[in-house]
Structure formats: structure tokens, C-alpha cells
Amino acid sequence: MDSPLLLPIARVQPENAQAKTLYFDHALHSQPGQFVMAWLPGIDQKPFSVAYDNGREFGFTVFPVGPLSQALVSLQPGDRVGITGPYGHPFSVKKDRHYITIGGGYGAGPLALLAERAAAAGAQVDFCLGAKTEGLLLFAQRVKTVPNLRVHIATDDGSLGRRGYVTEILEELLLETGAQTRLIAACGPELMEKKVLDLCNEHDVECEISLERYTKCGFGVCGQCCVDPLGIRMCVEGPVVDRETANRISEFGAYHRDKSGTKIRY
């Protein structure tokens, strides 16, 4: 049934200067990279990537940017949110890989979950995190407790870690050895992701990228989130796509469609 389940918020965790994670006591059974649709009656319903899921409790992290996201971050424990999902094609969790994850904005949420699951399976992880400034970094502390994981940070203003783009860290890591088992996983602003794809092509490394498109139903009916020229739906065949698929999506990094279907260039 793809009809919202009204779940009370168990706790609200402020994460940085803006973002908050809403936690629910509910067995979601999600995989890293999947999303839920979150509904507040009378306001809107939109997709949010699952940032935390331990089998009994799950959470997603919200950056307040508009009506729905602002309303979500103002909620208190006990307030209810209509949840449907989990939806979408996830990142793969493989034990014999050396993961390099590249995250920006709320993209750090699904990647932190991926890092935890991959590390638990026995994989090694380099967790690269970028933000405009230190106060907007997400989950830099959380992932420090993950075994076999190194954190790398870049900020635009140099307030923490390297001054510059997080993709510059990837460039350096790609020059290190271990080429055969590397798996790059990216989730963040599209132009960052495009840079990741270009680098992975250049170095011929396997990668998986979470590509977001305006989503209406979330379960593959309306066609709103399909991408050119393949026509695949980012809510079903995506949001996570592999390198070969990403290379065949001609609109990746070039344009996306808004709520009406009008093309908007990046």
C-alpha cells in the first residue's frame, strides 16, 4: 500500500547550524540510498533520503529551504509525519571493496548509512565530506566511530579541513593504490556529482551516484522523475545509478525538469 502511515517523531536531533534529523521508532527495512516520502497534511509531501536505519528506528535529515522542509524542522517529538516507502534503487553494500564516498549537503546522510553498513560487512571506507563552511558539515562526528574509516573534510571557506572542493580530495585518493577494489559512491549537488563521474571515467573506477529529480508519486507511475534519453525513473531505477547508466543519462549535469516538466538548465 502506497498510502501514508502516520508515525510520531521519537526524537529530533539538531545536526549543524541548519539541519535536523527526525527519528521514528519504526522498522523501515531500508537500504542505503533509498528514500521515504514525508507528508505534512495541508503542506506538501516530498522525498527525503534515509540517513539512519538500525532495523528498529530510522531517521532522515532535513535542511530547511522551503515550506515543507521548514515545517518539518519545526516539529517536536510526538508530532506525526505521514511516511511512505522506502523507495528507490540503493547503493550496493559489498564487503570486498574499498569505498570512497563523496558527500555534500544532505547527501552525507545516505552515505553515512552506507559507510556504516559497508564497514559492518568488512569494507574499508574513505568518507569525504564537503560544505560551504564548518557549521554546515553533516555527520563528520557520527562516522568517526565507524571502524576502518577515514574522514576527509573540505570547506569552501577553509573553516575546517581543506579549503576547496571535496572532489579535490577524491582526485588525490584516486592516485593512491588499490585500484581494483575501489568503489566510489556520491550523493550531493549535481555539479559535484558530475565532477565525480568525470574523474571516475578518467581513472576507469567503478562508481555509484545518487541522481535526484523532482519526484511526485515516488513509485514509478507519474513519469515526473524520468531522465533523458533513457526514460528511466529516478524513483524506481534510481536514485542510485552505476557509472555506465550515469554516462548514458545525457541530462546529467546539464538540465532537470521542474514540477511542470519544464526543462531547467544547470
Binding site: 502506497d2 507528508w39 509531501q45 505521514g82 511526485k216 508519486c217 511542470s260
Partner: peptide
């Protein structure tokens, strides 16, 4: 632009 979500329910 159409209506805000939810715009679809499946049972």
C-alpha cells in the same frame, strides 16, 4: 505546476 503532493495514492 499541478497540485502540491500527495497527488497519488496506491492501494
Amino acid at each position: 505546476a499541478g497540485h502540491p503532493n500527495p497527488t497519488m495514492v496506491g492501494t
